Amino acid sequence: MYLITGASGGLAKTAAEMLLESVPADQVVLTTRSPGKLQSFADRGAHVRYADFAVPDSLEAAFAGAERMLLVSTAQVGSRIGFHRNAIEGARRTGVEYLAYTSIVGAGIDANDAIVCTEHRATEAMLRESGLRWNVLRDSQYAEAVAYFIAPGAVARREMVGAWGEGTVGFVAREDCAAAAVGALLGRGEDNRAYEVTGPEELTYRQVCTMIAEISGVGIEYAPISDDEQYAIFDAIGVPREYQEDMSSSPIPWNSDDMVSFSRAIRVGNMSSLSDAVQTLGRRSPRSMRAVLEEAASTWPPAGAALQPAPADRVEEAAR
């Protein structure tokens, strides 16, 4: 049987839909902390089970009978490593033979000190030492994170401000990441290998800014800033610098150390990558950044409009 963790989340739910196009529903196990959110999958014959990585005792029953597993990384900076350790150990104990893990581009560079990359790098090391057959899927930055979170502010303010400099990113559509992950789960990859999962081209944020301006018809200035200036912006709106277990008082669900270190990694070239993994594993052509931006454009505000907080589901879907 095939198992996907965190299946009520955006990437995992998309992967579940794709997996059901290839295998019978009774061969699919979907785990989540909120089984009620997956009733439609249960109605189609998939096995929906409760699992919480923070509760290791819940994992044996959740993973029982699964042979091939997709571990979709959690979004909780600061607790991610421990949760992933519990999931990998639970998989090993219950007889899972193969595990694919969604990591991030840049995790394979030891000098890359972006917090998100150091946490994924630690999980990759645990997976290599687990005794399981494995694949690591190092996803590039989601194109949707730009299209639905950064672009609206750039259009409204006529300015795109950030500490990304002129570093390049192989922005990738989330559904393409899901397709690659399902391909690995189905055995299309080479065991015990990391795959970098990217879109069809590498772009700087300056180039993306130009695209947003062209699509919106609004003149937008690209404004590179330093790490210290980025911290000051986050400080001013009440974003904590370090990870906190309760981020409910923050206007953004990520701490600024995480976000600034990620921007710096882009700026210095540690997030640059281009690959054919979407084609190889997902058997599809990856969507372009422009295509994702054009799809999102109807949600952008007019220039000068007041920005509204992003919906909670969109925030969750964009989390790395």
Rank of each mutant, 00 (worst) to 15 (best):
S140K: 02
A54F: 03
Y222K: 07
L137A: 06
I150W: 09
E144Y: 13
P240I: 15
T31E: 12
A310D: 05
S273K: 07
E214Q: 09
I225P: 09
F41T: 08
A305T: 09
R68T: 04
E316V: 09
L30H: 11
G10V: 00
D113S: 08
G10T: 02
V72Y: 13
I220F: 01
I215Q: 00
E60C: 03
V315H: 01
D176Q: 07
E201S: 09
R128I: 01
D228L: 10
R92P: 03
A179Q: 12
I104L: 11
V116T: 11
A277S: 14
A91R: 10
N86Q: 15
F234C: 12
R128Y: 04
L59I: 09
Y148Q: 14
M271H: 06
I237D: 05
E316C: 03
E17L: 08
V155T: 03
A194Q: 03
P286N: 02
A42D: 04
V197D: 03
I220N: 00
G153A: 14
S256W: 08
G170L: 02
E196S: 10
A51P: 12
A46H: 03
P200S: 04
A61H: 15
Y231M: 14
Y231I: 06
I115D: 08
T118M: 10
A306T: 15
G165V: 00
E119T: 05
T14M: 10
V169C: 05
A66R: 12
S79W: 00
E242S: 10
R92Y: 00
I212L: 02
Q308H: 10
F53Y: 14
V23Y: 08
R206D: 01
G282D: 03
G36Y: 07
A179D: 10
P309V: 05
S130T: 04
T280W: 03
N86C: 11
L127R: 09
V268F: 00
L30E: 05
R157I: 00
T204Q: 01
A62P: 08
A62W: 05
L127Y: 04
L127P: 05
N270C: 03
A305E: 12
E17D: 14
E175C: 02
L3G: 11
I150A: 12
R157W: 06
G189F: 03
V96H: 13
D57R: 13
A7Q: 07
I150F: 13
A232D: 09
R320V: 10
E221K: 13
I88Q: 07
T204Y: 04
D235Q: 10
G9S: 15
A111K: 14
E229P: 07
I88G: 07
P311I: 12
I109D: 05
R133A: 08
A180M: 06
